[in-house]
């Protein structure tokens, strides 16, 4: 079979069918996005009944697959489906299958993703190797801390910035806060999501890791979230204040702090943080939930951008 007829296959879950789908093309060996629509077929697979060889065969035939290849290729696809569903994958791709001279398909490249939420892959007792990660100490420490407990999220992703240190709450909120920071010149250090009503110790640990690695170099500290449904503000903010007091001596200069939050037991939380900042003598501005988080983020970003233009000796109070 000539290289032009290498077979592309992928099994994924598709948002149009809300079902697993099998995608096939005889134009394998290239990026699936660059295969023209006319040369690939997608076929929803019944998640209960699975893929059978007959369906796979029909699909291959429709694509114009050479006849002797159809049967062995169909069998390989059924096995691939079997692997996909019994190991709890959310996507797997073989690109390409090469066809030997005696019409046998051979999978020549492969990638797959297990669904972490699916217990099946853990039941297989697969030996999944650990890949060395090229991540910062901060990222590594936070990732380790994150998996230690399911109480409250401790997600961070390094962004490589050197401006705003963001302590953010809520998955949706943190994304648009970071976007706003980027647009307004805030140069955020990382993306964070620390929502989910973390207890005191959890929040204290999370904030401690952030401050340990990032406080010394930060331009502005931003503590921001929307109006929380469940997260207790007095608990989380006291924890942040205590962590801040612990790591503040690592800075030689004051750090402006911008805060915005709403939610249960807001006032004791804001006052706990204010007290800490007054003790440290750091400049601060605290907003309630009546100021939109994107406006607070914009202000923090602009402030950070302006401070970065000052000569370093003028930043010291």
């Amino acid at each position: 079979m000539p290289a032009a007829n290498e077979v592309y296959t992928a099994i994924t879950y598709d948002s149009r069918y809300l079902s697993p789908i099998l995608t096939l093309s005889l134009r394998g060996g290239m990026d699936v996005e660059s295969i023209p629509d006319s040369e690939k077929r997608s076929f929803p697979v019944d998640v209960y009944q699975g893929l059978d060889a007959y369906q796979a065969g029909e699909l291959l035939e429709a694509l114009g697959c050479p006849r002797p290849v159809i049967s062995p290729m169909s069998r390989a696809l059924v096995n691939l489906w079997d692997m996909f569903i019994t190991s709890g994958m959310k996507m797997c791709e073989v690109n390409p299958w090469r066809i030997s001279e005696d019409h046998r398909p051979v999978a020549c490249d492969f990638k797959a993703v297990f669904d972490e939420a699916n217990f099946k892959h853990r039941n297989l007792e697969l030996e999944l190797p650990e890949y060395p990660e090229n991540v910062s100490e901060f990222q590594e420490e936070m990732d380790r801390w994150n998996v230690k407990s399911y109480q409250g999220q401790a997600h961070v992703s390094e962004l490589g910035g050197s401006g705003v240190l963001p302590i953010l709450f809520g998955g949706g909120a943190s994304t648009i806060i970071i976007e706003t920071l980027m647009q307004s010149g805030g140069d955020p250090m990382f993306l964070s999501d620390f929502g989910g009503n973390p207890p005191y110790d959890r929040m204290r640990g999370t904030a401690g890791i952030c401050f340990k690695h990032k406080l010394a170099k930060a331009g502005v500290l931003l503590i921001l979230g929307g109006k929380a449904n469940n997260t207790r503000i007095d608990v989380t903010f006291q924890a942040i204040a205590d962590a801040l007091a612990e790591y503040a001596p690592r800075r030689s200069t004051e750090l402006p702090v911008i805060v915005g939050r709403g939610g249960p037991r807001l006032v004791p939380g804001l006052l706990a943080l204010q007290r800490c900042l007054e003790e440290l003598g750091w400049p601060y501005t605290i907003f309630g939930h009546d100021t939109p988080i994107t406006m607070v983020a914009q202000y923090a970003g602009q402030l950070c951008k302006y401070l970065a233009t000052l000569p370093s000796d003028r930043k010291t109070a």
């Binding site: 004051e254 400049p283 501005t285 605290i286």
Partner: peptide, 21 residues
């Protein structure tokens, strides 16, 4: 919608900021 600070003490920094901030 507007920036509505509840608690604020920008200290000496506050005197050095440009009017927009």
């Amino acid at each position: 919608l507007r920036l509505n600070p509840w608690l604020k003490n920008m200290g000496k920094l506050g005197t050095r900021l440009p009017p927009a901030l």
